[in-house]
Design a protein around this nucleic acid. Sequence first.
DNA 1: GGGTTAACTGGACTCGCGGTACAGTGGAAG
DNA 2: CTTCCACTGTACCGCGAGTCCAGTTAACCC
Lengths: 205, 205
Amino acid sequence: MDQKVDTRSRILDIAEASVLEKGFEATSIEEIVAGAEISRGGFFYHFKDKNALARAMLERYIDAENALYDELFARARELNDDPLHCMLIGLKLLAEMLEDMPSGHPGCVIASTAYQDRLFDEGVRDLNRQAILGWRKRFRGMFEEIAEVYGVKEPVNLDALGDMVSGVVEGGLVLQRALREHNNASEQIMLFRTYLKLLFVPKQT
Amino acid sequence: MDQKVDTRSRILDIAEASVLEKGFEATSIEEIVAGAEISRGGFFYHFKDKNALARAMLERYIDAENALYDELFARARELNDDPLHCMLIGLKLLAEMLEDMPSGHPGCVIASTAYQDRLFDEGVRDLNRQAILGWRKRFRGMFEEIAEVYGVKEPVNLDALGDMVSGVVEGGLVLQRALREHNNASEQIMLFRTYLKLLFVPKQT
DNA sequence: GGGTTAACTGGACTCGCGGTACAGTGGAAG
DNA sequence: CTTCCACTGTACCGCGAGTCCAGTTAACCC
């Protein structure tokens, strides 16, 4: 119970690595149990089927992603109190983080799940949906704060702008995955950052 | 040979519809042959395996997408000769087109393939890569033309900006798929359009 | 009319994987 | 000493991909 990490988490670790590398379908239960050094029976003891595994993985992934955003923007806030600069610093940190990942970022489970969604049940799909809505809310809130202090040079829908953060990250990861380059996602984030710099201008008083 | 469309194309039609709706893995050969009203043997006569099918589908999809871009921006050019306005009009047309699709756009096969790539062979992955590189070149070219006439307010990498078109579309489609909303992709494109309006400014002479 | 070929049909079979069922076991906790 | 948890191990089912192959049908060619 100490040296051997909790089996359930070990299964999730192995499964996540494999799913991010080759996709959900291509990851067999056989291979998960081999990696986790348990029996097939043991796997089904923890997860009633692959769907339950997907659900648990998504939950964990989303929690981790949210924690990451929390930490990133908290640090950004420490560095600068201005909401716009906080956003810009946070995005820079995010971009750097994506770049520092050796062999590229694993890629977002969200997109992967979205494109194979018929494999999953309603619960999994809803989890996915809620995660993106959460990010929309989070970033929309930050943009509202910015808009209180700054003017916008062109009218934009702040919900859509919030979605654009997720969209740019997801899109960047798709490019990165397909191109087999390693910094497309961070490049795209930096480009989006430039957008914000152009969009928000000091309010004339 | 006239009323019965060429069987191969009919297989591809059925398969594409099904793959876009539920994903590649979830589409069984059984169901394709039922839809195309042929026998299993007939399917394997045309495609040696599912991989060959994927490859053919991707080729067709990419060709269609490129033809669409050709047409869209050709029409835009007819409407306005200025390279920036041509780009802006083209994006608007693209956004409108995505919005007009009943029940949303089918979703891009590129992302779908990227996230399941271990299912496919090197040929399929390379096709995917070449498509995105093609779009990069296409849009980069257009941005270069724009940059000859306009100045940029903030320095940007034009390759990355070219990628951003693909990225925003892909990302938007991911959001749309996951959220089950219907106009995220077009919204994201319009937001990107605003970016370009802010980025490119008339050159001071 | 006979021969060749392309485009199939249909059926039998193998294999891997997801999933089920269930009996047994070893160790910790009470 | 018993109970329960967290498994192991094995046997079994069904489905879908993929293989093999023998036979059919229609078209075209000499």
